[in-house]
Simulated scan of single mutants.
Amino acid sequence: MQGTKRKVVQALLYELCAMGFVSPAIALAFDRSMSYSGILAVMLSSIAMSWNMLFNALFERWEARQPSRERTLRRRLLHSLGFEGGLTLLLVPVMAWWLEISLVAALFTDIGLLAFFFVYAFVFQWCFDRLFGVPDSARAVPGCA
């Protein structure tokens, strides 16, 4: 699977699975209803999905210009760090507003989510690549070593 179809399927699966983890965790951590935390999870997921599409497009554009296109452990870690770092900047203000907490409290909340999502992003993308194959940007160029 390649191109736009790959990006859409990857983002949708990633976010649907993530909402299944995040919504109950927020409900428990903040003593909120599942509907309240579910709305927040949908908002966070919508932002994350948009960021996912943009970040992956930029990452793959960068990746395609690299001498080696192999998705090494280092490259996968770089991908996860870049994605989660940018997402933190986007989500902290939304969480602070919705949960009616300070930006500092929202940052600490996001750090907890970040710890989970750092591992989740790595494992999810590895599994996704195993199931659907890697994108063309990660394939070796014939004749190049």
Rank of each mutant, 00 (worst) to 15 (best):
Q2W: 03
Q2T: 09
G3S: 02
G3V: 03
T4S: 09
R6W: 00
V8M: 06
V8D: 04
Q10L: 15
A11P: 00
L12V: 09
L12W: 08
L12G: 03
L16S: 09
L16A: 10
A18H: 10
A18E: 09
G20M: 03
G20E: 04
G20K: 04
F21H: 07
F21E: 08
F21T: 06
F21W: 11
V22R: 12
S23G: 15
S23V: 15
A25T: 08
A27Y: 05
A27W: 07
A29G: 12
A29M: 11
D31Q: 11
R32C: 12
R32E: 12
S33P: 05
M34F: 13
S35C: 13
Y36K: 13
Y36S: 15
S37N: 02
S37I: 05
I39P: 08
I39S: 13
L40F: 04
L40D: 02
A41R: 01
M43I: 15
M43Q: 15
L44K: 09
L44R: 05
S45M: 06
S45R: 04
S46P: 04
I47C: 04
A48R: 03
A48S: 08
M49N: 05
W51V: 01
W51D: 02
M53R: 12
M53G: 11
F55R: 00
F55I: 00
E60S: 10
E60L: 14
A64N: 12
R65A: 08
Q66R: 07
P67W: 06
R69D: 00
E70C: 12
E70Y: 13
R71I: 14
R71V: 15
L73P: 07
R75Y: 08
L77D: 05
L77E: 07
L78E: 12
H79T: 10
S80R: 08
S80Q: 04
L81E: 04
F83D: 02
L87I: 06
L87S: 01
T88E: 14
L91T: 11
L91G: 09
V92M: 08
P93G: 05
P93R: 03
V94L: 06
M95P: 08
A96I: 01
W97M: 14
W97V: 13
L99C: 01
E100I: 10
E100C: 12
I101M: 05
L103K: 04
L103W: 10
A106K: 02
A106D: 02
L107S: 11
F108E: 15
T109L: 13
D110N: 14
D110R: 12
I111D: 11
I111E: 09
G112C: 06
L114C: 10
F116W: 08
F116G: 01
F116M: 03
F117E: 07
F117C: 07
F117R: 06
F118Q: 04
F118A: 04
V119H: 03
Y120G: 00
Y120S: 01
Q125P: 06
F128I: 01
F128K: 00
F128H: 00
F128C: 00
D129M: 08
D129H: 08
R130G: 09
G133K: 04
V134D: 07
P135Q: 02
P135F: 02
D136H: 14
S137D: 02
S137V: 09
S137T: 05
S137I: 06
A138H: 14
A140L: 13
V141M: 10
V141W: 10
P142I: 10
P142C: 07
P142Y: 08
P142F: 06
P142N: 05
G143A: 03
A145R: 14
